[in-house]
Amino acid sequence: MRRIILASASPRRKELLKQLIGDNFIVYPSSYEEPSQLDLNPEELLIKHSIEKARDVAKHFDSGLIISADTSVLYNGEVLGKPSSPENADEMLKKLNGKKFRVVTGLTVLDLDSAQEISEYESTDIWMSEMNAEQISAYIRTGEPLDKAGAFAAQGKGAVLVERVEGDFFNAVGLPLFRLGKILERFGVSVFDEEFS
């Protein structure tokens, strides 16, 4: 059985990967520090971050498949990462309030055995419902927005804010499972194999 390594500390990504392949992977978070200013478009930037995370973790293993991802919310060409404070979360949620925006994930699978690397991105459109100032404040008080890109979680209490999703819902949570499954197939790994059941 191939060793699969998830280069992320995200509990959401861990749960999503578990949904796909069970407990047949290890978690080894990357220590890569994302530079804030790079002369790249948002999709290229997210792919670059996912590549660097995978390569950082690759230094610690001699075989296996490394999966890494980097997710952000894009609104009007602006990348909204994780808020730095409750006030920052408030600003982000007011921007997205009642609007359509995109969740984009850069995804990399690095095969240490063949030294091959596949990197792609997935984009999902989301329409957020309108909230008044008190609803925004109440949501921020739950603490949920503070460690989420764009200050909301489609899989948590933030689900009640999501009016509509177009594209891969799992991408909006942080790991595009359809695209990941297709990339794994290219490395000869099928999620339907008995080893993952």
Results as ranks from 00 to 15, higher is better:
Thr71Phe: 05
Arg102Asp: 15
Pro83Gln: 04
Ala89Tyr: 07
Asp113Asn: 07
Gln116Glu: 12
Ala89Asn: 03
Glu33Pro: 14
Leu93Pro: 06
Ser72Thr: 14
Thr105Ile: 01
His49Leu: 09
Lys59Arg: 13
Gly64Asp: 00
Val109Leu: 02
Leu93Gly: 08
Leu74Tyr: 08
Gly77Ala: 00
Ala89Asp: 13
Gly106Tyr: 03
Glu78Arg: 04
Val109Cys: 00
His49Phe: 15
Asp23Ile: 07
Ile47Gly: 14
Glu33Cys: 12
Leu74Ile: 14
Asn41Asp: 11
Gly77Phe: 01
Asp90His: 11
Leu93Phe: 07
Val27Ala: 06
His60Ala: 02
Ile67Ala: 05
Asn24Pro: 09
Leu16Glu: 06
Ala89Val: 06
Ser36Trp: 02
Tyr75Ile: 01
Lys18Ile: 07
Ser84Gln: 11
His60Gly: 00
Glu33Arg: 11
Ser63Glu: 05
Asn41Arg: 06
Lys99Arg: 15
Gln116Leu: 06
Glu44Lys: 13
Val57Gly: 08
Phe25Tyr: 10
Ser36Ile: 14
Leu112Glu: 02
Ile67His: 03
Asp90Gly: 07
Gly98Lys: 08
Ile51Ala: 03
Ser68Ile: 01
Ser114Phe: 04
Asp113Arg: 01
Asn41Phe: 10
Gly22Val: 09
Lys48His: 15
Glu78Leu: 13
Lys99Thr: 03
Lys82Ala: 11
Asp113Gly: 01
Leu110Lys: 05
Phe101Tyr: 08
Ala54Phe: 00
Tyr32Asn: 09
Val73Trp: 14
Asn97Asp: 09
Lys94Phe: 00
Ile26His: 04
His60Phe: 09
Asn88His: 15
Gln116Phe: 03
Arg55Gln: 13
Asp111Phe: 01
Glu43Gln: 14
Ser85Asn: 04
Val27Trp: 02
Val27Leu: 03
